[in-house]
């Protein structure tokens, strides 16, 4: 089985606070992997370390077999990233930000198709600043798809989206998953995780509490739903 993302013994601290504590993750090609945990658990920092945006104390990271800091240009031709709460250059319009992103890659996706899929095509000439919160969020996911990525990172992908928009994003992602896309995401919505993720890792205070498939995790808990199982894991951790 081909491995898309491999994180070994990742450690990161800020001052005396340990943010990532000896984290090990392996994501196979074509898998949808969810990194879950409460606010401040270290999810975004973990993503930043994996992408080479933040330095880490020790450990190693490989995406598609490459070191993100050393082979940045080659790697990010094949990897799409949506960072949490992205913002944009003032005055830029939707069509322009798409054109700008597309210009950065060797073989970009046709963004007109993506805009239609995400129902943003009627806003092409509108300034990004005028979009609603949910539409901006959809746009940030769309921009991450412009490189036609083999691996996609989505940090809180549907925060602020309405039900319909959430479904539209899920449909696009499920469709891409069937085509072999590897997806690494964080989310606070367990229904979303149940729909999308093959495997999840729940972290708190920087270390992994459990890594398992969604059905296995539910089976291990005394509950039937992922949300209850998640809360059970968190409670167990506090009890420890």
């Amino acid at each position: 089985m081909e491995i898309s993302i491999e994180v070994k013994n990742l450690n990161k601290h800020y001052g005396n606070r340990i943010v990532v504590n000896n984290l090990n993750l392996t994501v196979k090609k074509g898998e949808v992997f969810g990194l879950l945990g409460p606010n401040g658990a270290g999810k975004s920092t973990t993503i930043d370390c994996i992408l080479g945006l933040k330095s880490f104390d020790n450990g190693s990271v490989r995406i598609l077999g490459m070191d993100p800091t050393k082979e940045r240009k080659r790697l990010f031709e094949r990897v799409g990233v949506q960072l949490q709460s992205s913002s944009y250059q003032g005055n830029i319009r939707i069509g322009e930000i798409c054109e700008e992103m597309a210009a950065l890659y060797r073989s970009p996706a046709n963004y007109d198709d993506l805009l239609a899929q995400f129902k943003l095509d009627q806003y092409q000439k509108q300034p990004v600043a005028k979009l609603s919160g949910g539409e901006k969020q959809k746009l940030s996911v769309l921009l991450a798809l412009i490189p036609q990525p083999e691996v996609l990172f989505l940090d809180e992908l549907t925060t602020g989206l309405d039900t319909e928009a959430r479904r539209a994003v899920w449909d696009v992602l499920i469709d891409l998953k069937e085509k072999g896309l590897t997806l690494f995401l964080t989310s606070h919505y367990m229904d979303e995780v149940e729909v999308l993720c093959d495997r999840i890792c729940i972290i708190n205070r920087g270390h992994a509490l459990v890594t398992d498939t969604v059905p296995e995790l539910i089976k291990r808990s005394p509950y039937q739903r992922l949300e209850d199982a998640y809360l059970w894991v968190m409670k167990e951790e506090i009890a420890v």
């Binding site: 080479g52 940045r72 080659r74 990010f76 990233v81 944009y88 950065l104 060797r106």
Partner: peptide, 14 residues
């Protein structure tokens, strides 16, 4: 401030 430079780090362009 808006982390636009950060966003460019995760593209093939510096």
């Amino acid at each position: 401030d808006k982390k636009i430079l950060k966003q460019f780090f995760v593209t093939p362009v510096s």
